[in-house]
């Protein structure tokens, strides 16, 4: 399964090993791991709760992975995104891409993250000392995704 939405944590090296297992053509693996920070917009964050739209989230991320496969010569791609309540230091998201050479993997990995941030239906709610607040979409994320159009 190239796309997994789950509450459980993930093991980065095990996932990378599985993705390139038995494929001697793979010469490059690029990965990105997103982590929960303890500070956002100047306030301390005690926890982060991720909501998603079951069904559409999987469908949209699969669409983004399919688009990456069309744009670059990559062998495989994996996206794991956690949902539910997470704490600072926790891993949120993993993107792994395999290819023959590094250029394709680097680009596809960044593309997948930029599109995940702007197109996949996930929403973050932070717990701060002032209470819960929904995270606002960032213009810089939209600008990052625009680079690929």
């Amino acid at each position: 399964m190239p796309v997994r939405i789950q509450t459980e944590d993930f093991d980065v090296s095990a996932e990378i090993a599985r993705l390139r297992e038995g494929n001697p053509k793979v010469g490059a693996v690029a990965s990105f791991v997103g982590i929960v920070r303890d500070l956002n917009e100047g306030d301390s964050v005690a926890s982060l709760t991720l909501e998603h739209y079951p069904g559409m989230t999987e469908k949209s991320v699969e669409g983004i992975v399919a688009e990456a496969r069309e744009r670059w010569e990559i062998y495989d791609a994996l996206v794991i995104h956690r949902v539910g309540t997470l704490s600072p230091l926790d891993q949120i998201v993993l993107v792994v891409v395999t290819s023959a050479h590094r250029g394709e993997s680097f680009k596809a990995c960044e593309f997948l993250m930029d599109y995940l941030k702007t197109r996949a239906p996930f929403w973050k709610k932070e717990q701060t000392p002032e209470g819960g607040r929904w995270v606002d979409a960032r213009a810089s994320d939209d600008a990052a995704a625009e680079r690929w159009t």
Binding site: G34, V93, L116, T118, R119, P121, F122, W134, V135, D141
Partner: peptide, 23 residues
């Protein structure tokens, strides 16, 4: 994803939500 001009018909699942903030 849809917009204001998208047709509405019976049996559809229609979702309203804020701009996404995942990743």
């Amino acid at each position: 994803m849809a917009d204001a001009n998208t047709p509405v018909s019976g049996g559809q699942e229609i979702a309203f939500f804020p701009p996404v903030t995942g990743g």
